[in-house]
Design a protein around this nucleic acid. Structure first.
Length: 560
RNA sequence: UGGGGCGUGGCCAAGCGGCAAGGCGCGGGACUUUGGAUCCCGUAUUCGGGGGUUCGAAUCCUCCCGCCCCAACCA
């Protein structure tokens, strides 16, 4: 597997695991797991966790399991299971034989529940959800014990068996752990272990009508799998005492849970609820909309697994709440794509350029470098002729200061071809808009050789008669503010310009064979990938993964 | 007013009693047939604040302040 060149930064988790490995606390073994609930698509925040879980195991010669925590049949589905497996694999990780489901442990969990009942540590409660809430107390007031708390073991056994048999309706009874209704930690106020759900589970079907809660299933699942280090996010810190309590009562293997801060990214949202809302509300085209922070979306956008792994490593792991600038993610993508992507010329907003002294009908082929960062990628030949397409932005009738591109009487280099001088423009008589730029070329400057002259600007072009047409989708941040979660109404702060569709874009002919998913650098513009869903040989569609750093845009913006 | 966490430059983040790594961003410069890439240089006398311990503290003690999480039969 490709590893980032940057040395692994120290973090508290690596240190703890290293210490346990050194002391042999778990027999020098390291077993971790990534435990998603199959109720949504994975996003960049999960990528951080995946890289951590699999990364730590890899580093210490251990293994990492993929386990689906599928304890809530009403929210989960096979579609999510499949997408999650695909995403983890795509990210570059392999769980080998170690694919598990919490639902595989339902019978064992049931047996253990009976064991706790027999030990007087669990009881069947008849309280309704509303009553349960009342009895739980508040943050500052202790809860009250349920009248059912003193039921006999025999009665509990009987009732629990009948719960399983389907004798009771949903919401009428639960199995609760008997811990401490006065605990300052609400998780210890007799938490629910089983609830009745007459729902079909995506794996166990209708075998069960009672389902373990996450709290009752998670710790034991880790224990069954022999997990040594159970990494999870901060909000589970309060649950650790509960997991420890269960494990102690059962007297089974005790993993070490370690909590870290989840990732927050600027200009996007990460909660499954909001992501689902974007999808179902049609605010985006789907889970794989290139603007989504989902792995499916990032992949379609043109992100590479390497860039995401590098990002995960660079942002580090700690316990402080954080908000990572999305520019950091974009930087990692540029760095990766810069060295692996072939360069190509594409004109997004075409403006006709006619070379008056270039013979009509003549065609030359100029040689272009495929990737200056990697000579091994070779060169290609690009057709050149009298009529070209250039970028509208590369011509200004009245150029601002420090404008190096084309303007009346100015000279510019056509990349890999000739140096041309602007001799005039043709305007639409009605609108005054420039519809065509005229110029003359210097035949001695073939290849772009300035021969000592100072030609500061170099622009890209595409020969008009040879050009391929394509649709290009320009993506920008999904939200126009860094912290959409803090807005009064988060959907009101969606970026109205997050997608700009350009049609009639002109590409150099070498792109004819571009295959779905392949990535290119459109010179001077950015990194683009062939859309894996909508592109076809007869209708090319490109997505901009990320723009190139644009110094001129900065100058022009600040200079005004 | 309960319990659990966290506070190091604009954003991440090292640091673990010996005198503030690194990355992103930002600013400046060099170079350049991508205003790309690359390369330099700059960017916290200070670590939420006050006391204290110590020859010496971001690192130990203490008080205070601020932020986050917990009252689903969600995970």
């Amino acid at each position: 597997m490709t590893q980032a060149a940057v040395p692994k930064a120290p973090n508290f988790i690596r240190q703890l695991v290293a210490e346990d490995t050194r002391t042999g606390r778990f027999g020098h073994r390291v077993v971790t797991r990534f435990p998603p609930e199959p109720n949504g698509y994975l996003h960049i925040g999960h990528a951080k966790a995946i890289c951590l879980d699999f990364g730590i195991a890899q580093e210490f010669g251990g293994r990492c399991h993929l386990r689906f925590d599928d304890t809530n049949p009403t929210k989960e589905s096979q579609e999510y299971v499949d997408s999650i497996k695909g995403d983890v694999r795509w990210l570059g990780f392999d769980w080998g034989e170690h694919l598990y489901y919490a639902s595989d442990y339902f019978e064992q969990l049931y047996t253990w529940a009976v064991q706790l009942i027999n030990g007087g540590q669990a009881y069947v409660d008849d309280l309704t959800p509303e009553q349960l809430r009342e009895y739980r107390g508040t943050l500052t007031e202790p809860g009250r014990e349920s009248p059912c708390r003193t039921r006999s073991i025999e009665e509990n056994l009987d009732l629990f068996g009948r719960m399983r048999a389907g004798e009771f309706d949903e919401g009428t009874r639960t199995l609760r752990a008997k811990i401490d209704m006065a605990s300052g930690n609400l998780n210890l106020r007799d938490p629910v272990m089983y609830r009745i759900r007459k729902a079909t589970h995506h794996r166990t079907g209708d075998t069960w009508c009672i389902y373990p809660t996450y709290d009752w299933a998670h710790g034991q699942s880790d224990s069954i799998e022999g997990v040594t280090h159970s990494l999870c996010t901060l909000e589970y810190e309060d649950h650790r005492p509960l997991y420890d309590w269960f494990l102690d009562q059962l007297g089974i293997h005790h993993p070490q849970q370690i909590e870290f801060a989840r990732l927050s990214l600027s200009h996007t949202v990460m909660s499954k609820r909001k992501l689902l809302e974007l999808v179902e509300g049609g605010l985006v085209s789907g889970w794989d909309d290139p603007r989504m922070p989902t792995l499916a979306g990032l992949r379609r956008r043109g992100y590479t697994p390497e860039a995401i792994r590098d990002f995960a490593e660079r942002i580090g792991v700690a316990k402080a709440d954080n908000l990572v600038d999305i520019a950091h993610l974009e930087h990692c993508l540029r760095e990766d794509l810069n060295r692996r992507t072939p360069r190509v010329m594409a004109v997004l907003r075409p403006l006709k350029l006619v070379i008056e002294n270039y013979r009509e009908g003549q065609v030359e082929e100029v040689e272009a470098v495929n990737n200056p960062e990697d000579p091994a990628m070779g060169t290609r030949r690009v057709p050149f002729s009298r009529v070209l397409w250039i970028e509208q932005d590369d011509f200004r009738e009245t150029p601002p200061p420090k404008y190096f591109r084309l303007s009346p009487d100015a000279e510019v280099r056509l990349r890999y071809a000739y140096i041309v001088k602007c001799t005039g423009v043709v305007k639409d008589p009605r609108t005054g808009e420039v519809t065509e730029v005229r110029c003359s070329y210097d035949p001695t400057s073939r290849g772009g050789d300035a021969q000592g002259r100072k030609v500061k600007g170099t622009i890209h072009w595409v020969s008009a008669p040879h050009a391929l047409e394509a649709e290009v989708r320009l993506y920008d941040h999904l939200f126009s503010v860094p912290k959409p979660d803090e807005a009064e109404d988060w959907t009101s702060v969606l970026n109205p310009h997050s997608l700009t569709v350009l049609t009639g874009c002109r590409l150099e002919p070498s792109l004819k064979a571009a295959t779905p998913g392949s990535r290119y650098q459109f010179e001077r513009q950015g990194y683009f990938s062939v859309d894996s869903v909508d592109s076809s040989p007869s209708r090319l569609v490109f997505s901009r993964a990320v723009g190139l750093r644009d110094t001129w845009a900065k100058i022009e913006k600040g200079g005004r």
